[in-house]
């Protein structure tokens, strides 16, 4: 069973100016431990697709199952739970809370998961260590570089051990060197077993992914496997 199964997934905006079909019947399966790069011209529906599979938005047509759960059937609380446990989202603009230090930002998903303060502290520190920022735990976003801020955001996305990491142009606001470091981090995380779907405009980045999906006008126009998903890594998660 694939981690993500979309069937004819569509998202239509009814605007005063007319109907906009942002996503037009996308059927896609994504397996666990895959590393999928989503590419395509601007306005082709990449972000729309990401928001739908990230349960931030609701489709206007078609179906979507995440880890076997039919997402359409969930209410607001059910979606919140799914976002909390199964999905880690990394944004182009980092979206860190400005008044809270790195540790606090990483703790946030665990607050809503209902973990105790001590557990949160411990696991947030671990997550920060995983992205190489263990020594910046008490820095506020303003006191961190863009790359460091994005690492904090990645740590936050990882901290509840989600089955899926979604990143919509995570390096879009970073210079190329920092962007390469962040990409290296994603690859490392993928090797450790995290399923990643990542939107990028960078063909170089696209080449590093196991699979490349290209969008145009709300449809998938190309779906290419570049590297086989390592069968050994598909074994039950023993490392966790």
């Amino acid at each position: 069973m694939a981690l993500i199964e979309t069937r004819d997934l569509s998202r239509v905006y009814d605007l005063d100016a007319g109907r906009v079909v942002a996503l037009d019947g996308v059927s896609l399966d994504i397996d666990q431990r895959d590393f999928v790069a989503v590419m395509g011209p601007s306005g082709s529906g990449k972000s729309t697709f990401m928001n739908l599979i990230g349960c931030l938005d609701r489709p206007t047509g078609g179906g979507y199952r995440l880890a076997g759960t039919a997402v359409e059937s969930l209410d607001a609380d059910g979606l919140a739970r799914l976002r909390n446990r199964e999905i880690g989202f990394v944004f182009q603009q980092f979206n860190l809370l400005p008044r809270v230090d790195a540790l606090g930002n990483v703790e946030l998903p665990m607050v809503y998961a209902g973990f105790s303060r001590r557990t949160r502290r411990k696991r947030a520190l671990q997550a920060l260590g995983r992205v190489g920022l263990a020594d910046r735990d008490h820095h506020r976003p303003m006191q961190l570089s863009g790359g460091q801020q994005q690492r904090v955001a990645i740590a936050r996305a990882l901290v509840n051990s989600p089955s899926l990491l979604l990143a919509d142009e995570p390096t879009g606001a970073l210079d190329s060197r920092t962007a390469n470091e962040i990409m290296a981090l994603f690859q490392e995380l993928n090797r450790e077993g995290v399923t990643i779907v990542l939107v990028t405009h960078d063909a170089e980045v696209g080449r590093h992914a196991h699979r490349l999906v290209r969008f145009r006008d709300g449809r998938v126009i190309e779906d290419r496997r570049q590297t086989p998903v390592d069968a050994r890594d598909l074994a039950p998660e023993a490392a966790e």
């Binding site: 931030l56 919140a80 976002r83 446990r85 979206n95 998903p109 809503y112 998961a113």
Partner: peptide, 8 residues
């Protein structure tokens, strides 16, 4: 953001 990370 809070909603995105799982706030109900």
């Amino acid at each position: 953001l809070r909603l995105a990370v799982g706030a109900r």
